[in-house]
């Protein structure tokens, strides 16, 4: 597989290894039934935040998709559907529907009327570079604040929220390494007195969020710094 991708035979030359973004950790907030804050809207697999906390490893992301799909949703969605089944077809003339449709149409029109000259790839690369360099595996407060300012000027706000979340977490934990918080040996330094919580960000207005803390309680294990030594 390595030879196929790089054209270099690893039996003869050392393998070139470097980190890369594969997917993001975290996701939509859901309850134990995998329902989001929108009643009837469920989020499964990698789309939700639920099982993996600060770390989500490759194969476990796939397993979460299978577990949610096979073992959770078939037993939880019925509770919602059992009462919804009596609801008749909802008219698209409903004032909430019309308002939502208009809101989306206006946003799309605004985007199309800009008559931009740059491709989707252009924005993807630029935003990707900001996120990779300033909100990557190792991040610090100075760079995160720069990233937030840069994203506010030109880009979609999801990246901004990820930077804000990284900025408020004054500890290193799981796959998230804040350079300011490391031991003398360069290992991740946790702060469980202040950060033993999952941050659930709630949209309160255009580009406005409020953080809700979900406390993490461990009854059978003691949380500690991970060590491979």
């Amino acid at each position: 597989m390595y030879k196929q991708i790089t054209g270099v035979d690893p039996y003869h030359s050392p393998m070139m290894i470097y980190p890369a973004v594969h997917y993001t950790m975290g996701g939509l907030w859901v309850d134990y039934n995998l329902m989001t804050t929108v009643p009837g809207l469920y989020a499964l697999g990698e789309a939700n935040f639920s099982d993996h906390g600060a770390n989500r490893l490759g194969a476990s992301a796939l397993m979460q998709g299978l577990a949610d799909g096979y073992f959770v949703i078939p037993y939880t969605i019925g509770a919602y559907l059992s009462s919804e089944i009596r609801t008749k077809a909802i008219s698209t003339d409903h004032e909430e529907f019309v308002a939502a449709e208009n809101r989306v149409r206006e946003t799309l029109q605004k985007l199309m009327q800009i008559k931009g000259t740059k491709s989707v790839d252009h924005f993807h690369r630029q935003l990707g570079k900001i996120m990779w360099e300033k909100c990557g595996m190792a991040r610090n407060a100075v760079a995160l604040k720069e990233a937030i300012a840069e994203i506010q000027e030109h880009f979609l706000e999801l990246g901004e929220l990820m930077c804000m979340d990284a900025l408020q977490r004054n500890e290193s934990c799981g796959g998230h390494f804040r350079e300011e918080h490391q031991t003398e040996e360069g290992e991740a330094m946790r702060d469980d007195d202040n950060f033993a919580f999952a941050a659930a960000w709630e949209l309160t207005g255009d580009s406005q969020w409020k953080m809700n803390k979900e406390e993490l309680k461990f009854e059978n294990i003691k949380i500690a710094q991970r060590s491979y030594k």
Partner: peptide, 19 residues
Amino acid sequence: SEDMSFLEMFDVLNERLIN
């Protein structure tokens, strides 16, 4: 580049066509 994937070669073409 010979290290480009076939799709990346198409990305380069499409970027040019869009521009």
